[in-house]
Design a protein around this nucleic acid. Structure first.
Lengths: 113, 113
DNA sequence: CGGCATCCGAAACGATACTG
DNA sequence: CAGTATCGTTTCGGATGCCG
């Protein structure tokens, strides 16, 4: 098993596991992806209601990053009032086995306080 | 598919995915576990050399948390000079499928700059 | 409605020095 | 050798207000 951990010239770690963590490590990202994968599509404020505790700024931040990373799609309707729909992307779907593993491990090992 | 996302009375998210993320979300934790799973046992300073860039404090912090979470074992020899060996625990081994998924996804999706 | 800008506090991370 | 203590920095998340 190759561990695939290398280091660049500045001492920074270059590791595919760390790369993955960077993409989904945000506090709400996994949950957002999880919701979108289940339901298919949500509007901005619908997501907000699904994630009690998340603030305005942080939610849009995480959505933006997820979109920038190609993990979700953002569809904007130019209406008044505005309407934006988020859905999981093809690439985001490839994360599902991983999320399921995380969910499985957490369920089997977490005391859930 | 049950999304297994609930909220406690303080608005805090209780979700098995987030639980997993808390356990392995530290900057070096996955890499430490990965190394230990490959090699079996490392001494403190060996790990340090494997993780260029990690500082003294942060490494011992992460090791301490991993140990507290039962994911690694710490064996201390009362010699002079001191000798401490870290190894992966039974519980830590249950994380391997997850780490492999993370590694796989990162390899397939990461540009690795 | 769906943002963005600003400010703030907390937490994570890091550099350095000291210790049994 | 394998840490701990202290301090500083950086990053992340949160509160609030403004805007098209």
């Amino acid at each position: 098993m190759d561990n695939n951990v290398t280091v660049d010239d500045k001492g920074k770690l270059k590791c595919s596991i760390e790369y993955t963590l960077q993409k989904i490590g945000g506090k709400w990202k996994t949950v957002i992806l999880w919701h979108l994968s289940v339901e298919g599509t949500y509007r901005y404020n619908e997501l907000r209601r699904l994630l009690p505790g998340v603030t305005h700024k942080v939610l849009s931040q995480q959505l933006k990053e997820l979109e920038a990373d190609g993990l979700i799609n953002r569809k904007q309707y130019n209406e008044m009032p505005p309407k934006v729909e988020y859905s999981i992307s093809e690439r985001g779907i490839t994360l599902m086995p991983l999320l399921q593993e995380m969910h499985k491990w957490g369920t089997e090992n977490g005391e859930m306080n």
